[in-house]
């Protein structure tokens, strides 16, 4: 049992750096995808949809990658805190924006849009 744990731990130390790096890069790509969605979608609500998920998702992936790459335990702990606060605050901010937009009367754009559609207002 102890040897199994030891081999697992040694494997972990071997794969730690590449996996962390890959997670970082994938998180970065997800961030670009979200930003492209923010640019190209036609309406405030679709833009919200694009960014809220990809933002928190990219942040999670990058933070997990950085935890795997972190030199000390304290840095990993602080990264966990960053993740917890972002997980709380980011979706709440998206909710607040959607709520404000809806009660201000922004209508979602229904129907096919052109190539680079802009919102009506």
């Amino acid at each position: 049992m102890a040897e199994l744990l030891e081999t697992l731990l040694s494997w972990f130390h071997v794969v730690r750096e590449p996996v962390g790096g890959v997670l970082l890069v994938v998180g970065g790509l997800l961030a670009i995808v979200g930003a492209v969605g923010l640019l190209r979608f036609p309406d405030i609500y679709t833009r919200l949809h694009a960014t809220s998920v990809t933002d928190t998702g990219a942040a999670t992936l990058m933070i997990v990658g950085m935890i795997l790459l972190s030199p000390t335990g304290w840095v990993a702990l602080k990264l966990v805190f960053i993740w917890v606060f972002m997980f709380l605050a980011n979706p709440t901010a998206s909710h607040a924006i959607a709520n404000a937009a809806y009660t201000a009367g922004m209508e979602p754009k229904i129907g096919p849009s052109g190539d680079t559609g802009e919102a009506d207002r």
Binding site: L88, A89, T92, H95, A96, N99, T103
Partner: peptide
């Protein structure tokens, strides 16, 4: 409307 904001 604002229950989420207040709780968070």
């Amino acid at each position: 409307h604002h229950v989420v904001l207040r709780v968070v």
